[in-house]
Amino acid sequence: MKPAPFAYARASTLAEVFDALETHGDAARLLAGGQSLVAALNLRLASPSLLLDINGVAALRGVTFADGLLRIGALTRHAELGADPLVALHAPLLAQAVPHIAHAAIRNRGTIGGSLALADPAAELPACVLALEAVLVLASRAGERRVAAGDFFQGLYRTALRGDEVLAAVEVPPRAGASCTVQELARRHGDYAIVGLAAQSLGQGVQLAWFGVGAVPLRTPLAEAALAAGDIAGAQAALAGELDPPGDLHGPPALRLHLARVLLGRAAAALKGH
């Protein structure tokens, strides 16, 4: 199908983005990588009256490391994320997630900011920033506010972003030397995961963030504690009380729970193998 008609404008500064959001409200949509939004336009699942292309906003670009924080600009494309030396050093979990995201052509356009702002429950990056205990920087005319990843994802495709805000960057506390792994089960490579797990261990701590198991990405603190203590079977058993996955065309909830236990076993082996 073809998109319904819309007006199109390019922003080159954040001020222009705020102007458009103020003038057009919900009728405007921000266009970053477009790998979900343009598909939604083509399918007429979205029909904004204005599409504001933010690809030219320099303030949303770039990866930097300063004052002990890795800052990843919202417009960082998946392929850039996977190739960036600062990301590889300080947040290897994100680099490891990239090959799981769709396919090469999509990774060349899709952005981390777009993926987080869309908040698809089966997407990799929302779970990764949750495991990394990252902070999302939301910009509006009033300034920036910072929201922990755990508070950002609020429901199915629902986030803490307000109508006058744009997701500007992700700030990640450095995890140099962390063991990490991204595990997922999908029918075909590149498909959205039936169940996925972003896992990291550093020192005594283990972080497990699940995707595809509910409306938002989830941490499982009891399983984390068991795994940190070396009790893999205990961690797998704890999942029954911590995950309540939905049933769908892939199978009933019990299947997803079983697959989650399988992934946890694989993740434990991968973390140990590092």
Binding site: G34, A104, I106
Partner: peptide, 12 residues
């Protein structure tokens, strides 16, 4: 770079 021609607007 390889892209999907259907997921990029011509004006982009």
């Amino acid at each position: 770079q390889m892209v999907r021609g259907c997921l990029m607007l011509a004006v982009q």
